[in-house]
Amino acid sequence: MDGSEIEAEGKVLFRDAPAGHGSVDEATIAYRPQGGTVGHWIAKAFRADPRLQGRHELKRLKMLVETGEIATSVNRREERT
């Protein structure tokens, strides 16, 4: 992806889930971790793991589609990260 710090490419698939269970959204992302395997471990330790981030982003997309907003437990707008 252009402008990204990490070399990556990917695709997002949407398909109908059976029996009215909504839709299944699937993201496949290939990336080259910065700093090789050791860099990947460090990223994981700081929760910057692309797999976890990707999963979080998909969940946020689901929230946005289903509710029109992204849930947060902060009490004030400036606390929102």
Binding site: K59, K62, M63, T67, I70, A71
Partner: peptide, 20 residues
């Protein structure tokens, strides 16, 4: 109110109220 569980009436299992 909009997720699979809320629509089933299983509100305490809501998918979207716990922040990601």
């Amino acid at each position: 109110g909009g997720c699979f569980f809320c629509q089933l009436g299983q509100f305490s299992a809501c998918d979207n109220s716990n922040p990601v």
